[in-house]
Computed example of a mutant assay.
Amino acid sequence: MTDETAQMPVENGALTNGSDATSPAIRVLAQYVKDFSFENPHAPNSLREGSQPKIDLQLDVSARAMEEAGVFEVDLKINARSERDGQSQFIIELVYSGLFQFANIPADAFEPLLLAECPKLLFPFARHLIANTSQAGGYPPLMLDPMDFGALYASQKLESANAQPA
């Protein structure tokens, strides 16, 4: 299997796909753990069997332009807290980031790309880190359900539009 994005040549700072220099293009330049924390405050007592744990999951996405034209950093922030019988089992805080380069993208398409499509590309890697870390902490792997970032983005846009005064 080949990596399509790795084969996109860059000419004069703009992405090309080999056929049309005006075609829209997105390229993942890098992805990385920006911040990561795992706390297991009540181990080993919290590792004992008990009632079903309650998982509180919070997710946030942010993006910012970098100094290089057309390059943006997208942060996917995931906080997961497991509690059982009123006591914390574990707390995971992760900021998983990516650098994305865009070429020939209309201005009105940037926001949905940055806040829906880019996090969709980052999520599987963040999910894997969280599952492995919770398992290394002595718990069953925390397998996050797949996220529909497009629907989350649309819902957030609708909420903000409804919150605006008429």
Rank of each mutant, 00 (worst) to 15 (best):
G13R: 01
A6G: 10
Q164K: 12
I91P: 06
S62G: 10
P112E: 00
V74A: 01
N132I: 09
G70L: 10
V10G: 00
R27D: 00
Y32W: 12
P106L: 06
S155E: 14
A65T: 04
E68G: 01
L29E: 04
P24T: 00
G18Q: 05
A136L: 10
R64F: 14
P119L: 09
I26L: 13
R81Y: 05
P106T: 15
Y153I: 07
T5E: 14
E67C: 09
N79P: 09
I26H: 05
A43L: 00
L113H: 13
V74T: 07
V10N: 12
V28H: 11
A107T: 10
D85E: 15
H128D: 08
L99K: 08
L142Q: 03
A14Q: 15
E117G: 11
D60E: 11
L142N: 01
T16Y: 05
N162G: 15
L29M: 01
L94D: 01
L152M: 09
A65E: 15
A69K: 11
E49M: 05
S23K: 15
S134K: 03
Q101E: 13
A14W: 07
L158K: 05
P119S: 10
E11Y: 06
K120E: 11
A14R: 15
Y32K: 05
R81P: 06
Q101R: 10
V10Q: 04
L15P: 02
D75K: 15
M143W: 13
L144V: 14
P119D: 14
Q89Y: 08
T133V: 05
L122M: 05
V10K: 00
L152W: 07
F102D: 06
L59Y: 09
R127G: 00
S97R: 02
P140E: 14
A131Q: 00
D145R: 04
R84M: 03
M147P: 07
E159W: 02
A103S: 15
L59M: 11
M66S: 13
Q156K: 07
A14P: 07
L129G: 06
V74Y: 03
E83W: 00
L99F: 15
G98I: 04
T22E: 09
N45I: 13
G98W: 01
S23M: 06
L114Y: 06
E117P: 07
A126F: 05
L15F: 03
N12H: 11
S134W: 02
Q164C: 12
E111F: 06
R27A: 13
D75P: 14
R81W: 10
E93W: 06
D85Y: 10
M147A: 08
A116Q: 11
R27G: 00
F38D: 04
N12I: 01
C118N: 09
L59H: 04
D75M: 14
R84D: 14
A116K: 09
P146V: 03
D56Q: 10
A163Q: 09
L15E: 01
P24I: 08
